[in-house]
Design a binder for these strands. Structure first.
Length: 334
DNA sequence: AACTGAGCCAACCGCCGAGAC
DNA sequence: AGTCTCGGCGGTTGGCTCAGT
């Protein structure tokens, strides 16, 4: 049944590659070209797994790779792309000639994250840290009709991890239950600046292509999903869609964002950019316009009253969902 | 000189979708 | 139809280097 294994996993060499091993890979590729990596160890005389050979080639030996430091321009591009699509390293690397996903990922983790943090920008959400803290403060100070005394980071973490772990909320499924949840996740992530965390776990389509309406404690859900858009869409086409957006405009906004000392301007740029990006990315601008009125406007500004009604609406919505979808009880049981 | 901790990055791990068998 | 590997991906880790004590 199935294919035979490519190598004896227990008896292959691991760890750092020697120059001799590199030379064998290079010699093999120059004679046979790239591909069929399972055959490479045998034919090249290496005691390595084919997968390991492939990684060594793609991440280090490829002749088109740059091995020098990242330039200022590359740095800016990484930040800009990360702000737009999150940690999709291979996709980002495709737009940086000579760099691999591993290079970009390492550079981000070791340099850029710290650099942004030093500038007072949250590297996950690309929003000013002060804004995130003030959002938390607003939310955690709230008390609502004895149902929940505080909404804090632990809760939000718990919420998002439960969503992540729950097989019920799988994007591939088109279940009504999962869809009815998306607007809530959308709102929670915006209020708490956890959007990238969620976007990475749930396909970008889910969180951004939904909209909901909650106002004055009355909740109702409206999914504004473009007709052409499928919940179970493959990741690759989502990625393509992401890069169909006007990256140049995002770059412009983000450069202004980085250049400005004024926090106010940073806040404005951030919210405008993120909002527009998200809408344009998924062709939502029109849907949003069409659906937006007093009843359907979203309440994700950071005014305490809005947050208050948001939390109340969230709790109301919890109750509704628990009644409608008992299977979600475990997820909502916080 | 010896030790320690932080920074860095190559390589590994584990998951997933596609496709071979 | 079911099982399995391959190839691709993002997350994590092991080990090397180097600065500080």
């Amino acid at each position: 049944m199935g294919r035979p294994p490519c190598c004896d996993k227990a008896n292959v060499k691991k760890g750092i590659w020697t120059p001799e091993e590199d030379a064998k890979i290079l010699a093999y590729v120059s004679n046979h070209g790239v591909g069929n990596w399972t055959q490479v160890p045998k034919k090249a005389g290496l005691n390595r797994c084919g997968k390991s050979c492939r990684l060594r080639w793609t991440n280090y030996l490829r002749p088109d790779l740059k091995h020098e430091e990242f330039t200022e321009q590359e740095e800016q591009l990484i930040i800009q792309y990360h702000a737009a699509i999150g940690s999709r390293w291979s996709l980002i690397a495709k737009h940086l000639p000579g760099r691999t996903d591993n290079d970009v990922k390492n550079y981000w983790n070791t340099k850029l994250k710290k650099k942004l943090a030093k500038m007072g920008i949250d590297p996950v959400t690309h929003k000013p840290i002060s804004k995130i803290l003030s959002d938390y403060e607003s939310i955690s100070c709230l008390t609502t009709n004895g149902q929940m005394r505080s909404v804090d980071k632990t809760l939000v973490d718990s919420f998002s991890s439960r969503c992540r772990l729950s097989p019920s909320i799988h994007l591939g499924s088109e279940s009504a239950a999962a869809m009815s949840w998306m607007p809530m996740i959308d709102q929670l992530q915006e209020i708490t600046s956890f959007n990238h965390c969620m976007l990475d776990q749930v396909s970008p389509s889910s969180t951004s292509s939904s909209s909901s309406s909650i106002s004055n404690g009355q909740s109702s859900s409206h999914l504004l999903v473009p007709a052409s858009y499928s919940w179970g869409e493959k990741k690759s086409s989502v990625d393509d869609r992401l890069f169909d957006t006007d990256i140049a405009e995002q770059e412009h906004n983000y450069r202004g964002f980085l250049a400005e000392d004024s926090q106010t301007l940073i806040l404005e740029n951030s919210s405008q950019t993120n909002s527009k990006m998200t809408d344009d990315k998924f062709g939502l601008s029109d849907c949003k316009k069409a659906g937006q009125n007093a009843e359907t406007s979203r309440c994700y500004d950071s005014e305490p009253s809005s947050v208050n009604s948001f939390v109340k609406a969230l709790l109301d919505r919890d109750s509704e969902i628990q009644l409608d979808f008992p299977a979600f009880h475990d997820i909502l049981d916080y």
